[in-house]
Amino acid sequence: MISETQKWKVGQRASPQKLSSSKGLFRVGKGFALGSILPIILLIAWEIAARVGLLAPHLLPAPSIILEKIISMYRDGSLFGHVSITLTRVLLGFAIGTAAAVVIGAIVGYAKTAEQVLDPLFQAFRSIPSLAWVPLFILWMGIGEPSKISLIAVGVFFPVYLNIVAGIQGVDRKLIEVGRIYQLTPFQLTKRIILPAALPSFITGMRSGLGLGWMFVVAAELMGASEGLGYLLVVGQNTYSPDTVIASILLFAILGKGTDALLKWIEYRSLKWQDSINNQA
């Protein structure tokens, strides 16, 4: 009953392994190359400007010097320590913040009463600049890891929470009715319809939460730490070594981009069903 042309057309539109085909890889490579043009030009211009003496080396050293700094840190083994402690803090804070946001966001999004009770309070907390928590957390938990991770968790919590609530409340009533036709229990309805439907905005929330997590780890480490990339920033400032400062900024950029790319990949994998511009053949 379905014509051959229709089959062919659908087959074209829904070719499954777009990424694994050589054409798909080429496209990804092309995107990567296009995205690299501007950074590379800037780096070369910067290097040349530094070499000919246009830039003062005690303010903005050449990229090659910064690279040397990173390599020397790698050689003496301190690089791994700084990167891993910062990454651990971010990931732990991110995990705690996201988990709390999922639980509370799901309740607030699903139950009208819970929203009326809890949401005004959370909105008020949200409007507190998160850095204002720093002194309190240090008073409560001292200068160690718990206060830093709590701060990051607070930063991650709000974007994830807001997006989950919005995602759940935005689930199409028509799809929920399909579940009710099959007499799903509230738990089954949540698991089989509401959560998958809210997944896109949940992932959006996670991505902006992760961005904030990276912001807050710097704040936390600037306040007092003996290791970590934020600590390197302080050291660089105190020892007048711009190469250390820029090296850690660069490492932040790489780590931030890397973790975001990971989430973006997860997003791509889990939202292939979406009828969006990104998924067009």
Binding site: L175, V178, A197, L199, W273, Q274
Partner: peptide, 12 residues
């Protein structure tokens, strides 16, 4: 069993 005006398939 119910069929609506729209297919109401679950897109995921």
């Amino acid at each position: 069993g119910m069929m609506f005006q729209e297919p109401r398939l679950l897109p995921w």
